[in-house]
Design a binder for these strands. Sequence first.
DNA 1: CAAAACATACACCGATCGGTTTCTTCGATC
DNA 2: GATCGAAGAAACCGATCGGTGTATGTTTTG
Lengths: 196, 196
Amino acid sequence: MKSQATSRERLLEAASELFYRDGVSIGVDALCKAAGVSKKSMYQLFRSKDEVIAESLAARGPYYNALLLPSPDDERSPRERILSVFEREDELAASNEYFGCPFVSTATELKNPEHPGSVVARHFKQALTDFFRAELVRAGAEDADTLAIQLTMIFDGAGARAVVRAQPLRNVGVQLASTVLDAAGVRDEQLAAHAR
Amino acid sequence: MKSQATSRERLLEAASELFYRDGVSIGVDALCKAAGVSKKSMYQLFRSKDEVIAESLAARGPYYNALLLPSPDDERSPRERILSVFEREDELAASNEYFGCPFVSTATELKNPEHPGSVVARHFKQALTDFFRAELVRAGAEDADTLAIQLTMIFDGAGARAVVRAQPLRNVGVQLASTVLDAAGVRDEQLAAHAR
DNA sequence: CAAAACATACACCGATCGGTTTCTTCGATC
DNA sequence: GATCGAAGAAACCGATCGGTGTATGTTTTG
């Protein structure tokens, strides 16, 4: 027993890290070596490298959501719950190992929007938008759809800043999101589930 | 004479297009074939493929700026000049051949922030921020530095939306930028060079 | 203990990678 | 018309690409 995780789990975990850190162009040999799994085994667990890309990205979803999103029993106001996402992202970006949202990065590298990995990325981004939308609805905001998209754009814009390694100014994303919520009349005092 | 452009020009132009459309992983052979230049010639015009990447990106800068930024003798208000950038981006994104900002895309693929191409990308983003900042100063906005960064983030967030091919909702970036300018008190009536 | 199932290491496949070299062809100069 | 340099086509280099086949264990199962 070299580890209690299955070959599949080790493979997906190594893939998540390597594809994010070094790009999806990293070779299958290097990936298998890092995972401690033979190529043969990999190819009978997955049909192709592309499938590994897509599945490792999909597996990253819940983990990444847990990092970013407030827990469901976090009873702060919708506004605070939304802003906490940008605070989390800001913390991540400060850690020097953050090169932007992994889903956007991978989609950027894959180019082809039909690639299974791109589909996963699109779904994840929609899930983030859905989270924002649900909170905005709870807060009673008008035009929650557009606002949710705008918040997602701010999130990815902050990610792009990390990608190009612009000078790290803290909390710019949080401030920007605050401005948008202010303009939309989403305030702290609004109680959850008390949407007018 | 196969074309009036020099080998160098043809190479950089083909590189700009192929690296953007297919990614920087595209091979040197394919690049040279597309440019109608022999590998031999390429390697005596440039030291390495990495140098071609950086120079083709740098060459794209002025062209891309001309596409996005209003001309200096465009006499609209700073606010309108700023918003026009997001309108331009929105038009680009609608064209189905736009996969996000080329500079952010390339930096994402390169991973290494020390790569000459990443340096060029960082400079370009700073130039865009500088444009926003100059307009904001002209409009008399407070905290022009932070606002300029926020506008750049919105720009790149809209680019990320194009990358993941989210459902194309028009003018979301423009609206978002408007909201931010409204909140900052940057209005149309403010005349250029009449900063308070 | 034997048999079957599995996972390993590793050679191998054709293709392509970034980069170099050789040879040829062409056009300008004297 | 002879000479020279620039540029093109293409072979070549070792390395690596995604993917497959084989042969040797190592477990699990009966």
